Simulated assay, not measured.
Amino acid sequence: MASLIVAVVASMAAGFIVWGADRRRSRYGIFLLPGLALAAGLLLWVVLQLAGAGSDPDLHWLVWALPPAAAAVAAVTGALIIGPAREARDTADLERVLRL
Rank of each mutant, 00 (worst) to 15 (best):
Met1Glu: 14
Ala2Leu: 15
Ala2Trp: 10
Ala2His: 12
Ala2Gly: 01
Ser3Arg: 13
Ser3Gln: 13
Leu4Gln: 06
Leu4His: 02
Val6Met: 12
Ala7Arg: 05
Val8His: 01
Val9Trp: 04
Val9Gln: 03
Ala10Thr: 15
Ala10Ile: 07
Met12Gly: 12
Met12Pro: 01
Met12Thr: 13
Ala13Lys: 07
Ala13His: 09
Gly15Pro: 05
Phe16Ala: 06
Val18His: 02
Val18Thr: 02
Val18Asp: 01
Gly20Lys: 13
Ala21Cys: 09
Arg23Glu: 15
Arg25Tyr: 10
Ser26Asn: 09
Arg27Thr: 09
Arg27Val: 05
Tyr28Ser: 04
Phe31Thr: 12
Leu32Thr: 15
Leu33Met: 08
Leu33Asn: 02
Leu33Trp: 08
Pro34Met: 07
Gly35Cys: 11
Gly35Arg: 03
Ala37Met: 08
Ala37Thr: 00
Leu38Asp: 04
Ala39His: 03
Ala40Val: 12
Ala40Arg: 03
Gly41Glu: 08
Leu43His: 04
Leu43Cys: 06
Leu43Trp: 09
Leu43Lys: 01
Leu44Asp: 05
Val46Asp: 12
Val46Thr: 10
Leu48Asp: 06
Gly52Glu: 14
Gly52Lys: 14
Gly52Cys: 11
Ala53Lys: 02
Gly54Lys: 07
Gly54Tyr: 07
Gly54Met: 08
Ser55Thr: 15
Ser55Gly: 14
Asp56Cys: 03
Asp56Asn: 14
Asp56Ile: 01
Pro57Gly: 10
Asp58Arg: 14
Asp58Gln: 15
Leu59Ala: 14
His60Leu: 08
His60Gln: 12
Trp61Glu: 01
Trp61Thr: 10
Trp61Ala: 03
Leu62Thr: 02
Val63Arg: 05
Ala65Glu: 08
Ala65Pro: 00
Pro67Val: 01
Pro68Asp: 11
Ala69Gly: 12
Ala71Leu: 07
Ala71Val: 01
Ala72Phe: 02
Ala72Tyr: 04
Ala72Met: 12
Val73Gly: 10
Val73Pro: 05
Val73Arg: 06
Val73Ile: 13
Val73Met: 14
Val76Lys: 01
Val76Cys: 07
Thr77Glu: 03
Thr77Lys: 04
Thr77Tyr: 11
Gly78Phe: 05
Ala79Ser: 15
Leu80Asn: 09
Ile81Tyr: 13
Ile82Ala: 14
Ile82Pro: 00
Ile82Asn: 07
Gly83Thr: 00
Arg86Ile: 03
Ala88Pro: 02
Ala88Lys: 09
Arg89Phe: 05
Asp90Asn: 03
Asp90Ser: 11
Thr91Gly: 00
Ala92Leu: 10
Ala92Met: 09
Asp93Cys: 00
Asp93Asn: 13
Asp93Met: 05
Leu94Glu: 13
Leu94Trp: 15
Glu95Ile: 00
Glu95Ser: 09
Arg96Asn: 09
Arg96Asp: 09
Arg96Ile: 03
Arg99Leu: 10
Leu100Ile: 11
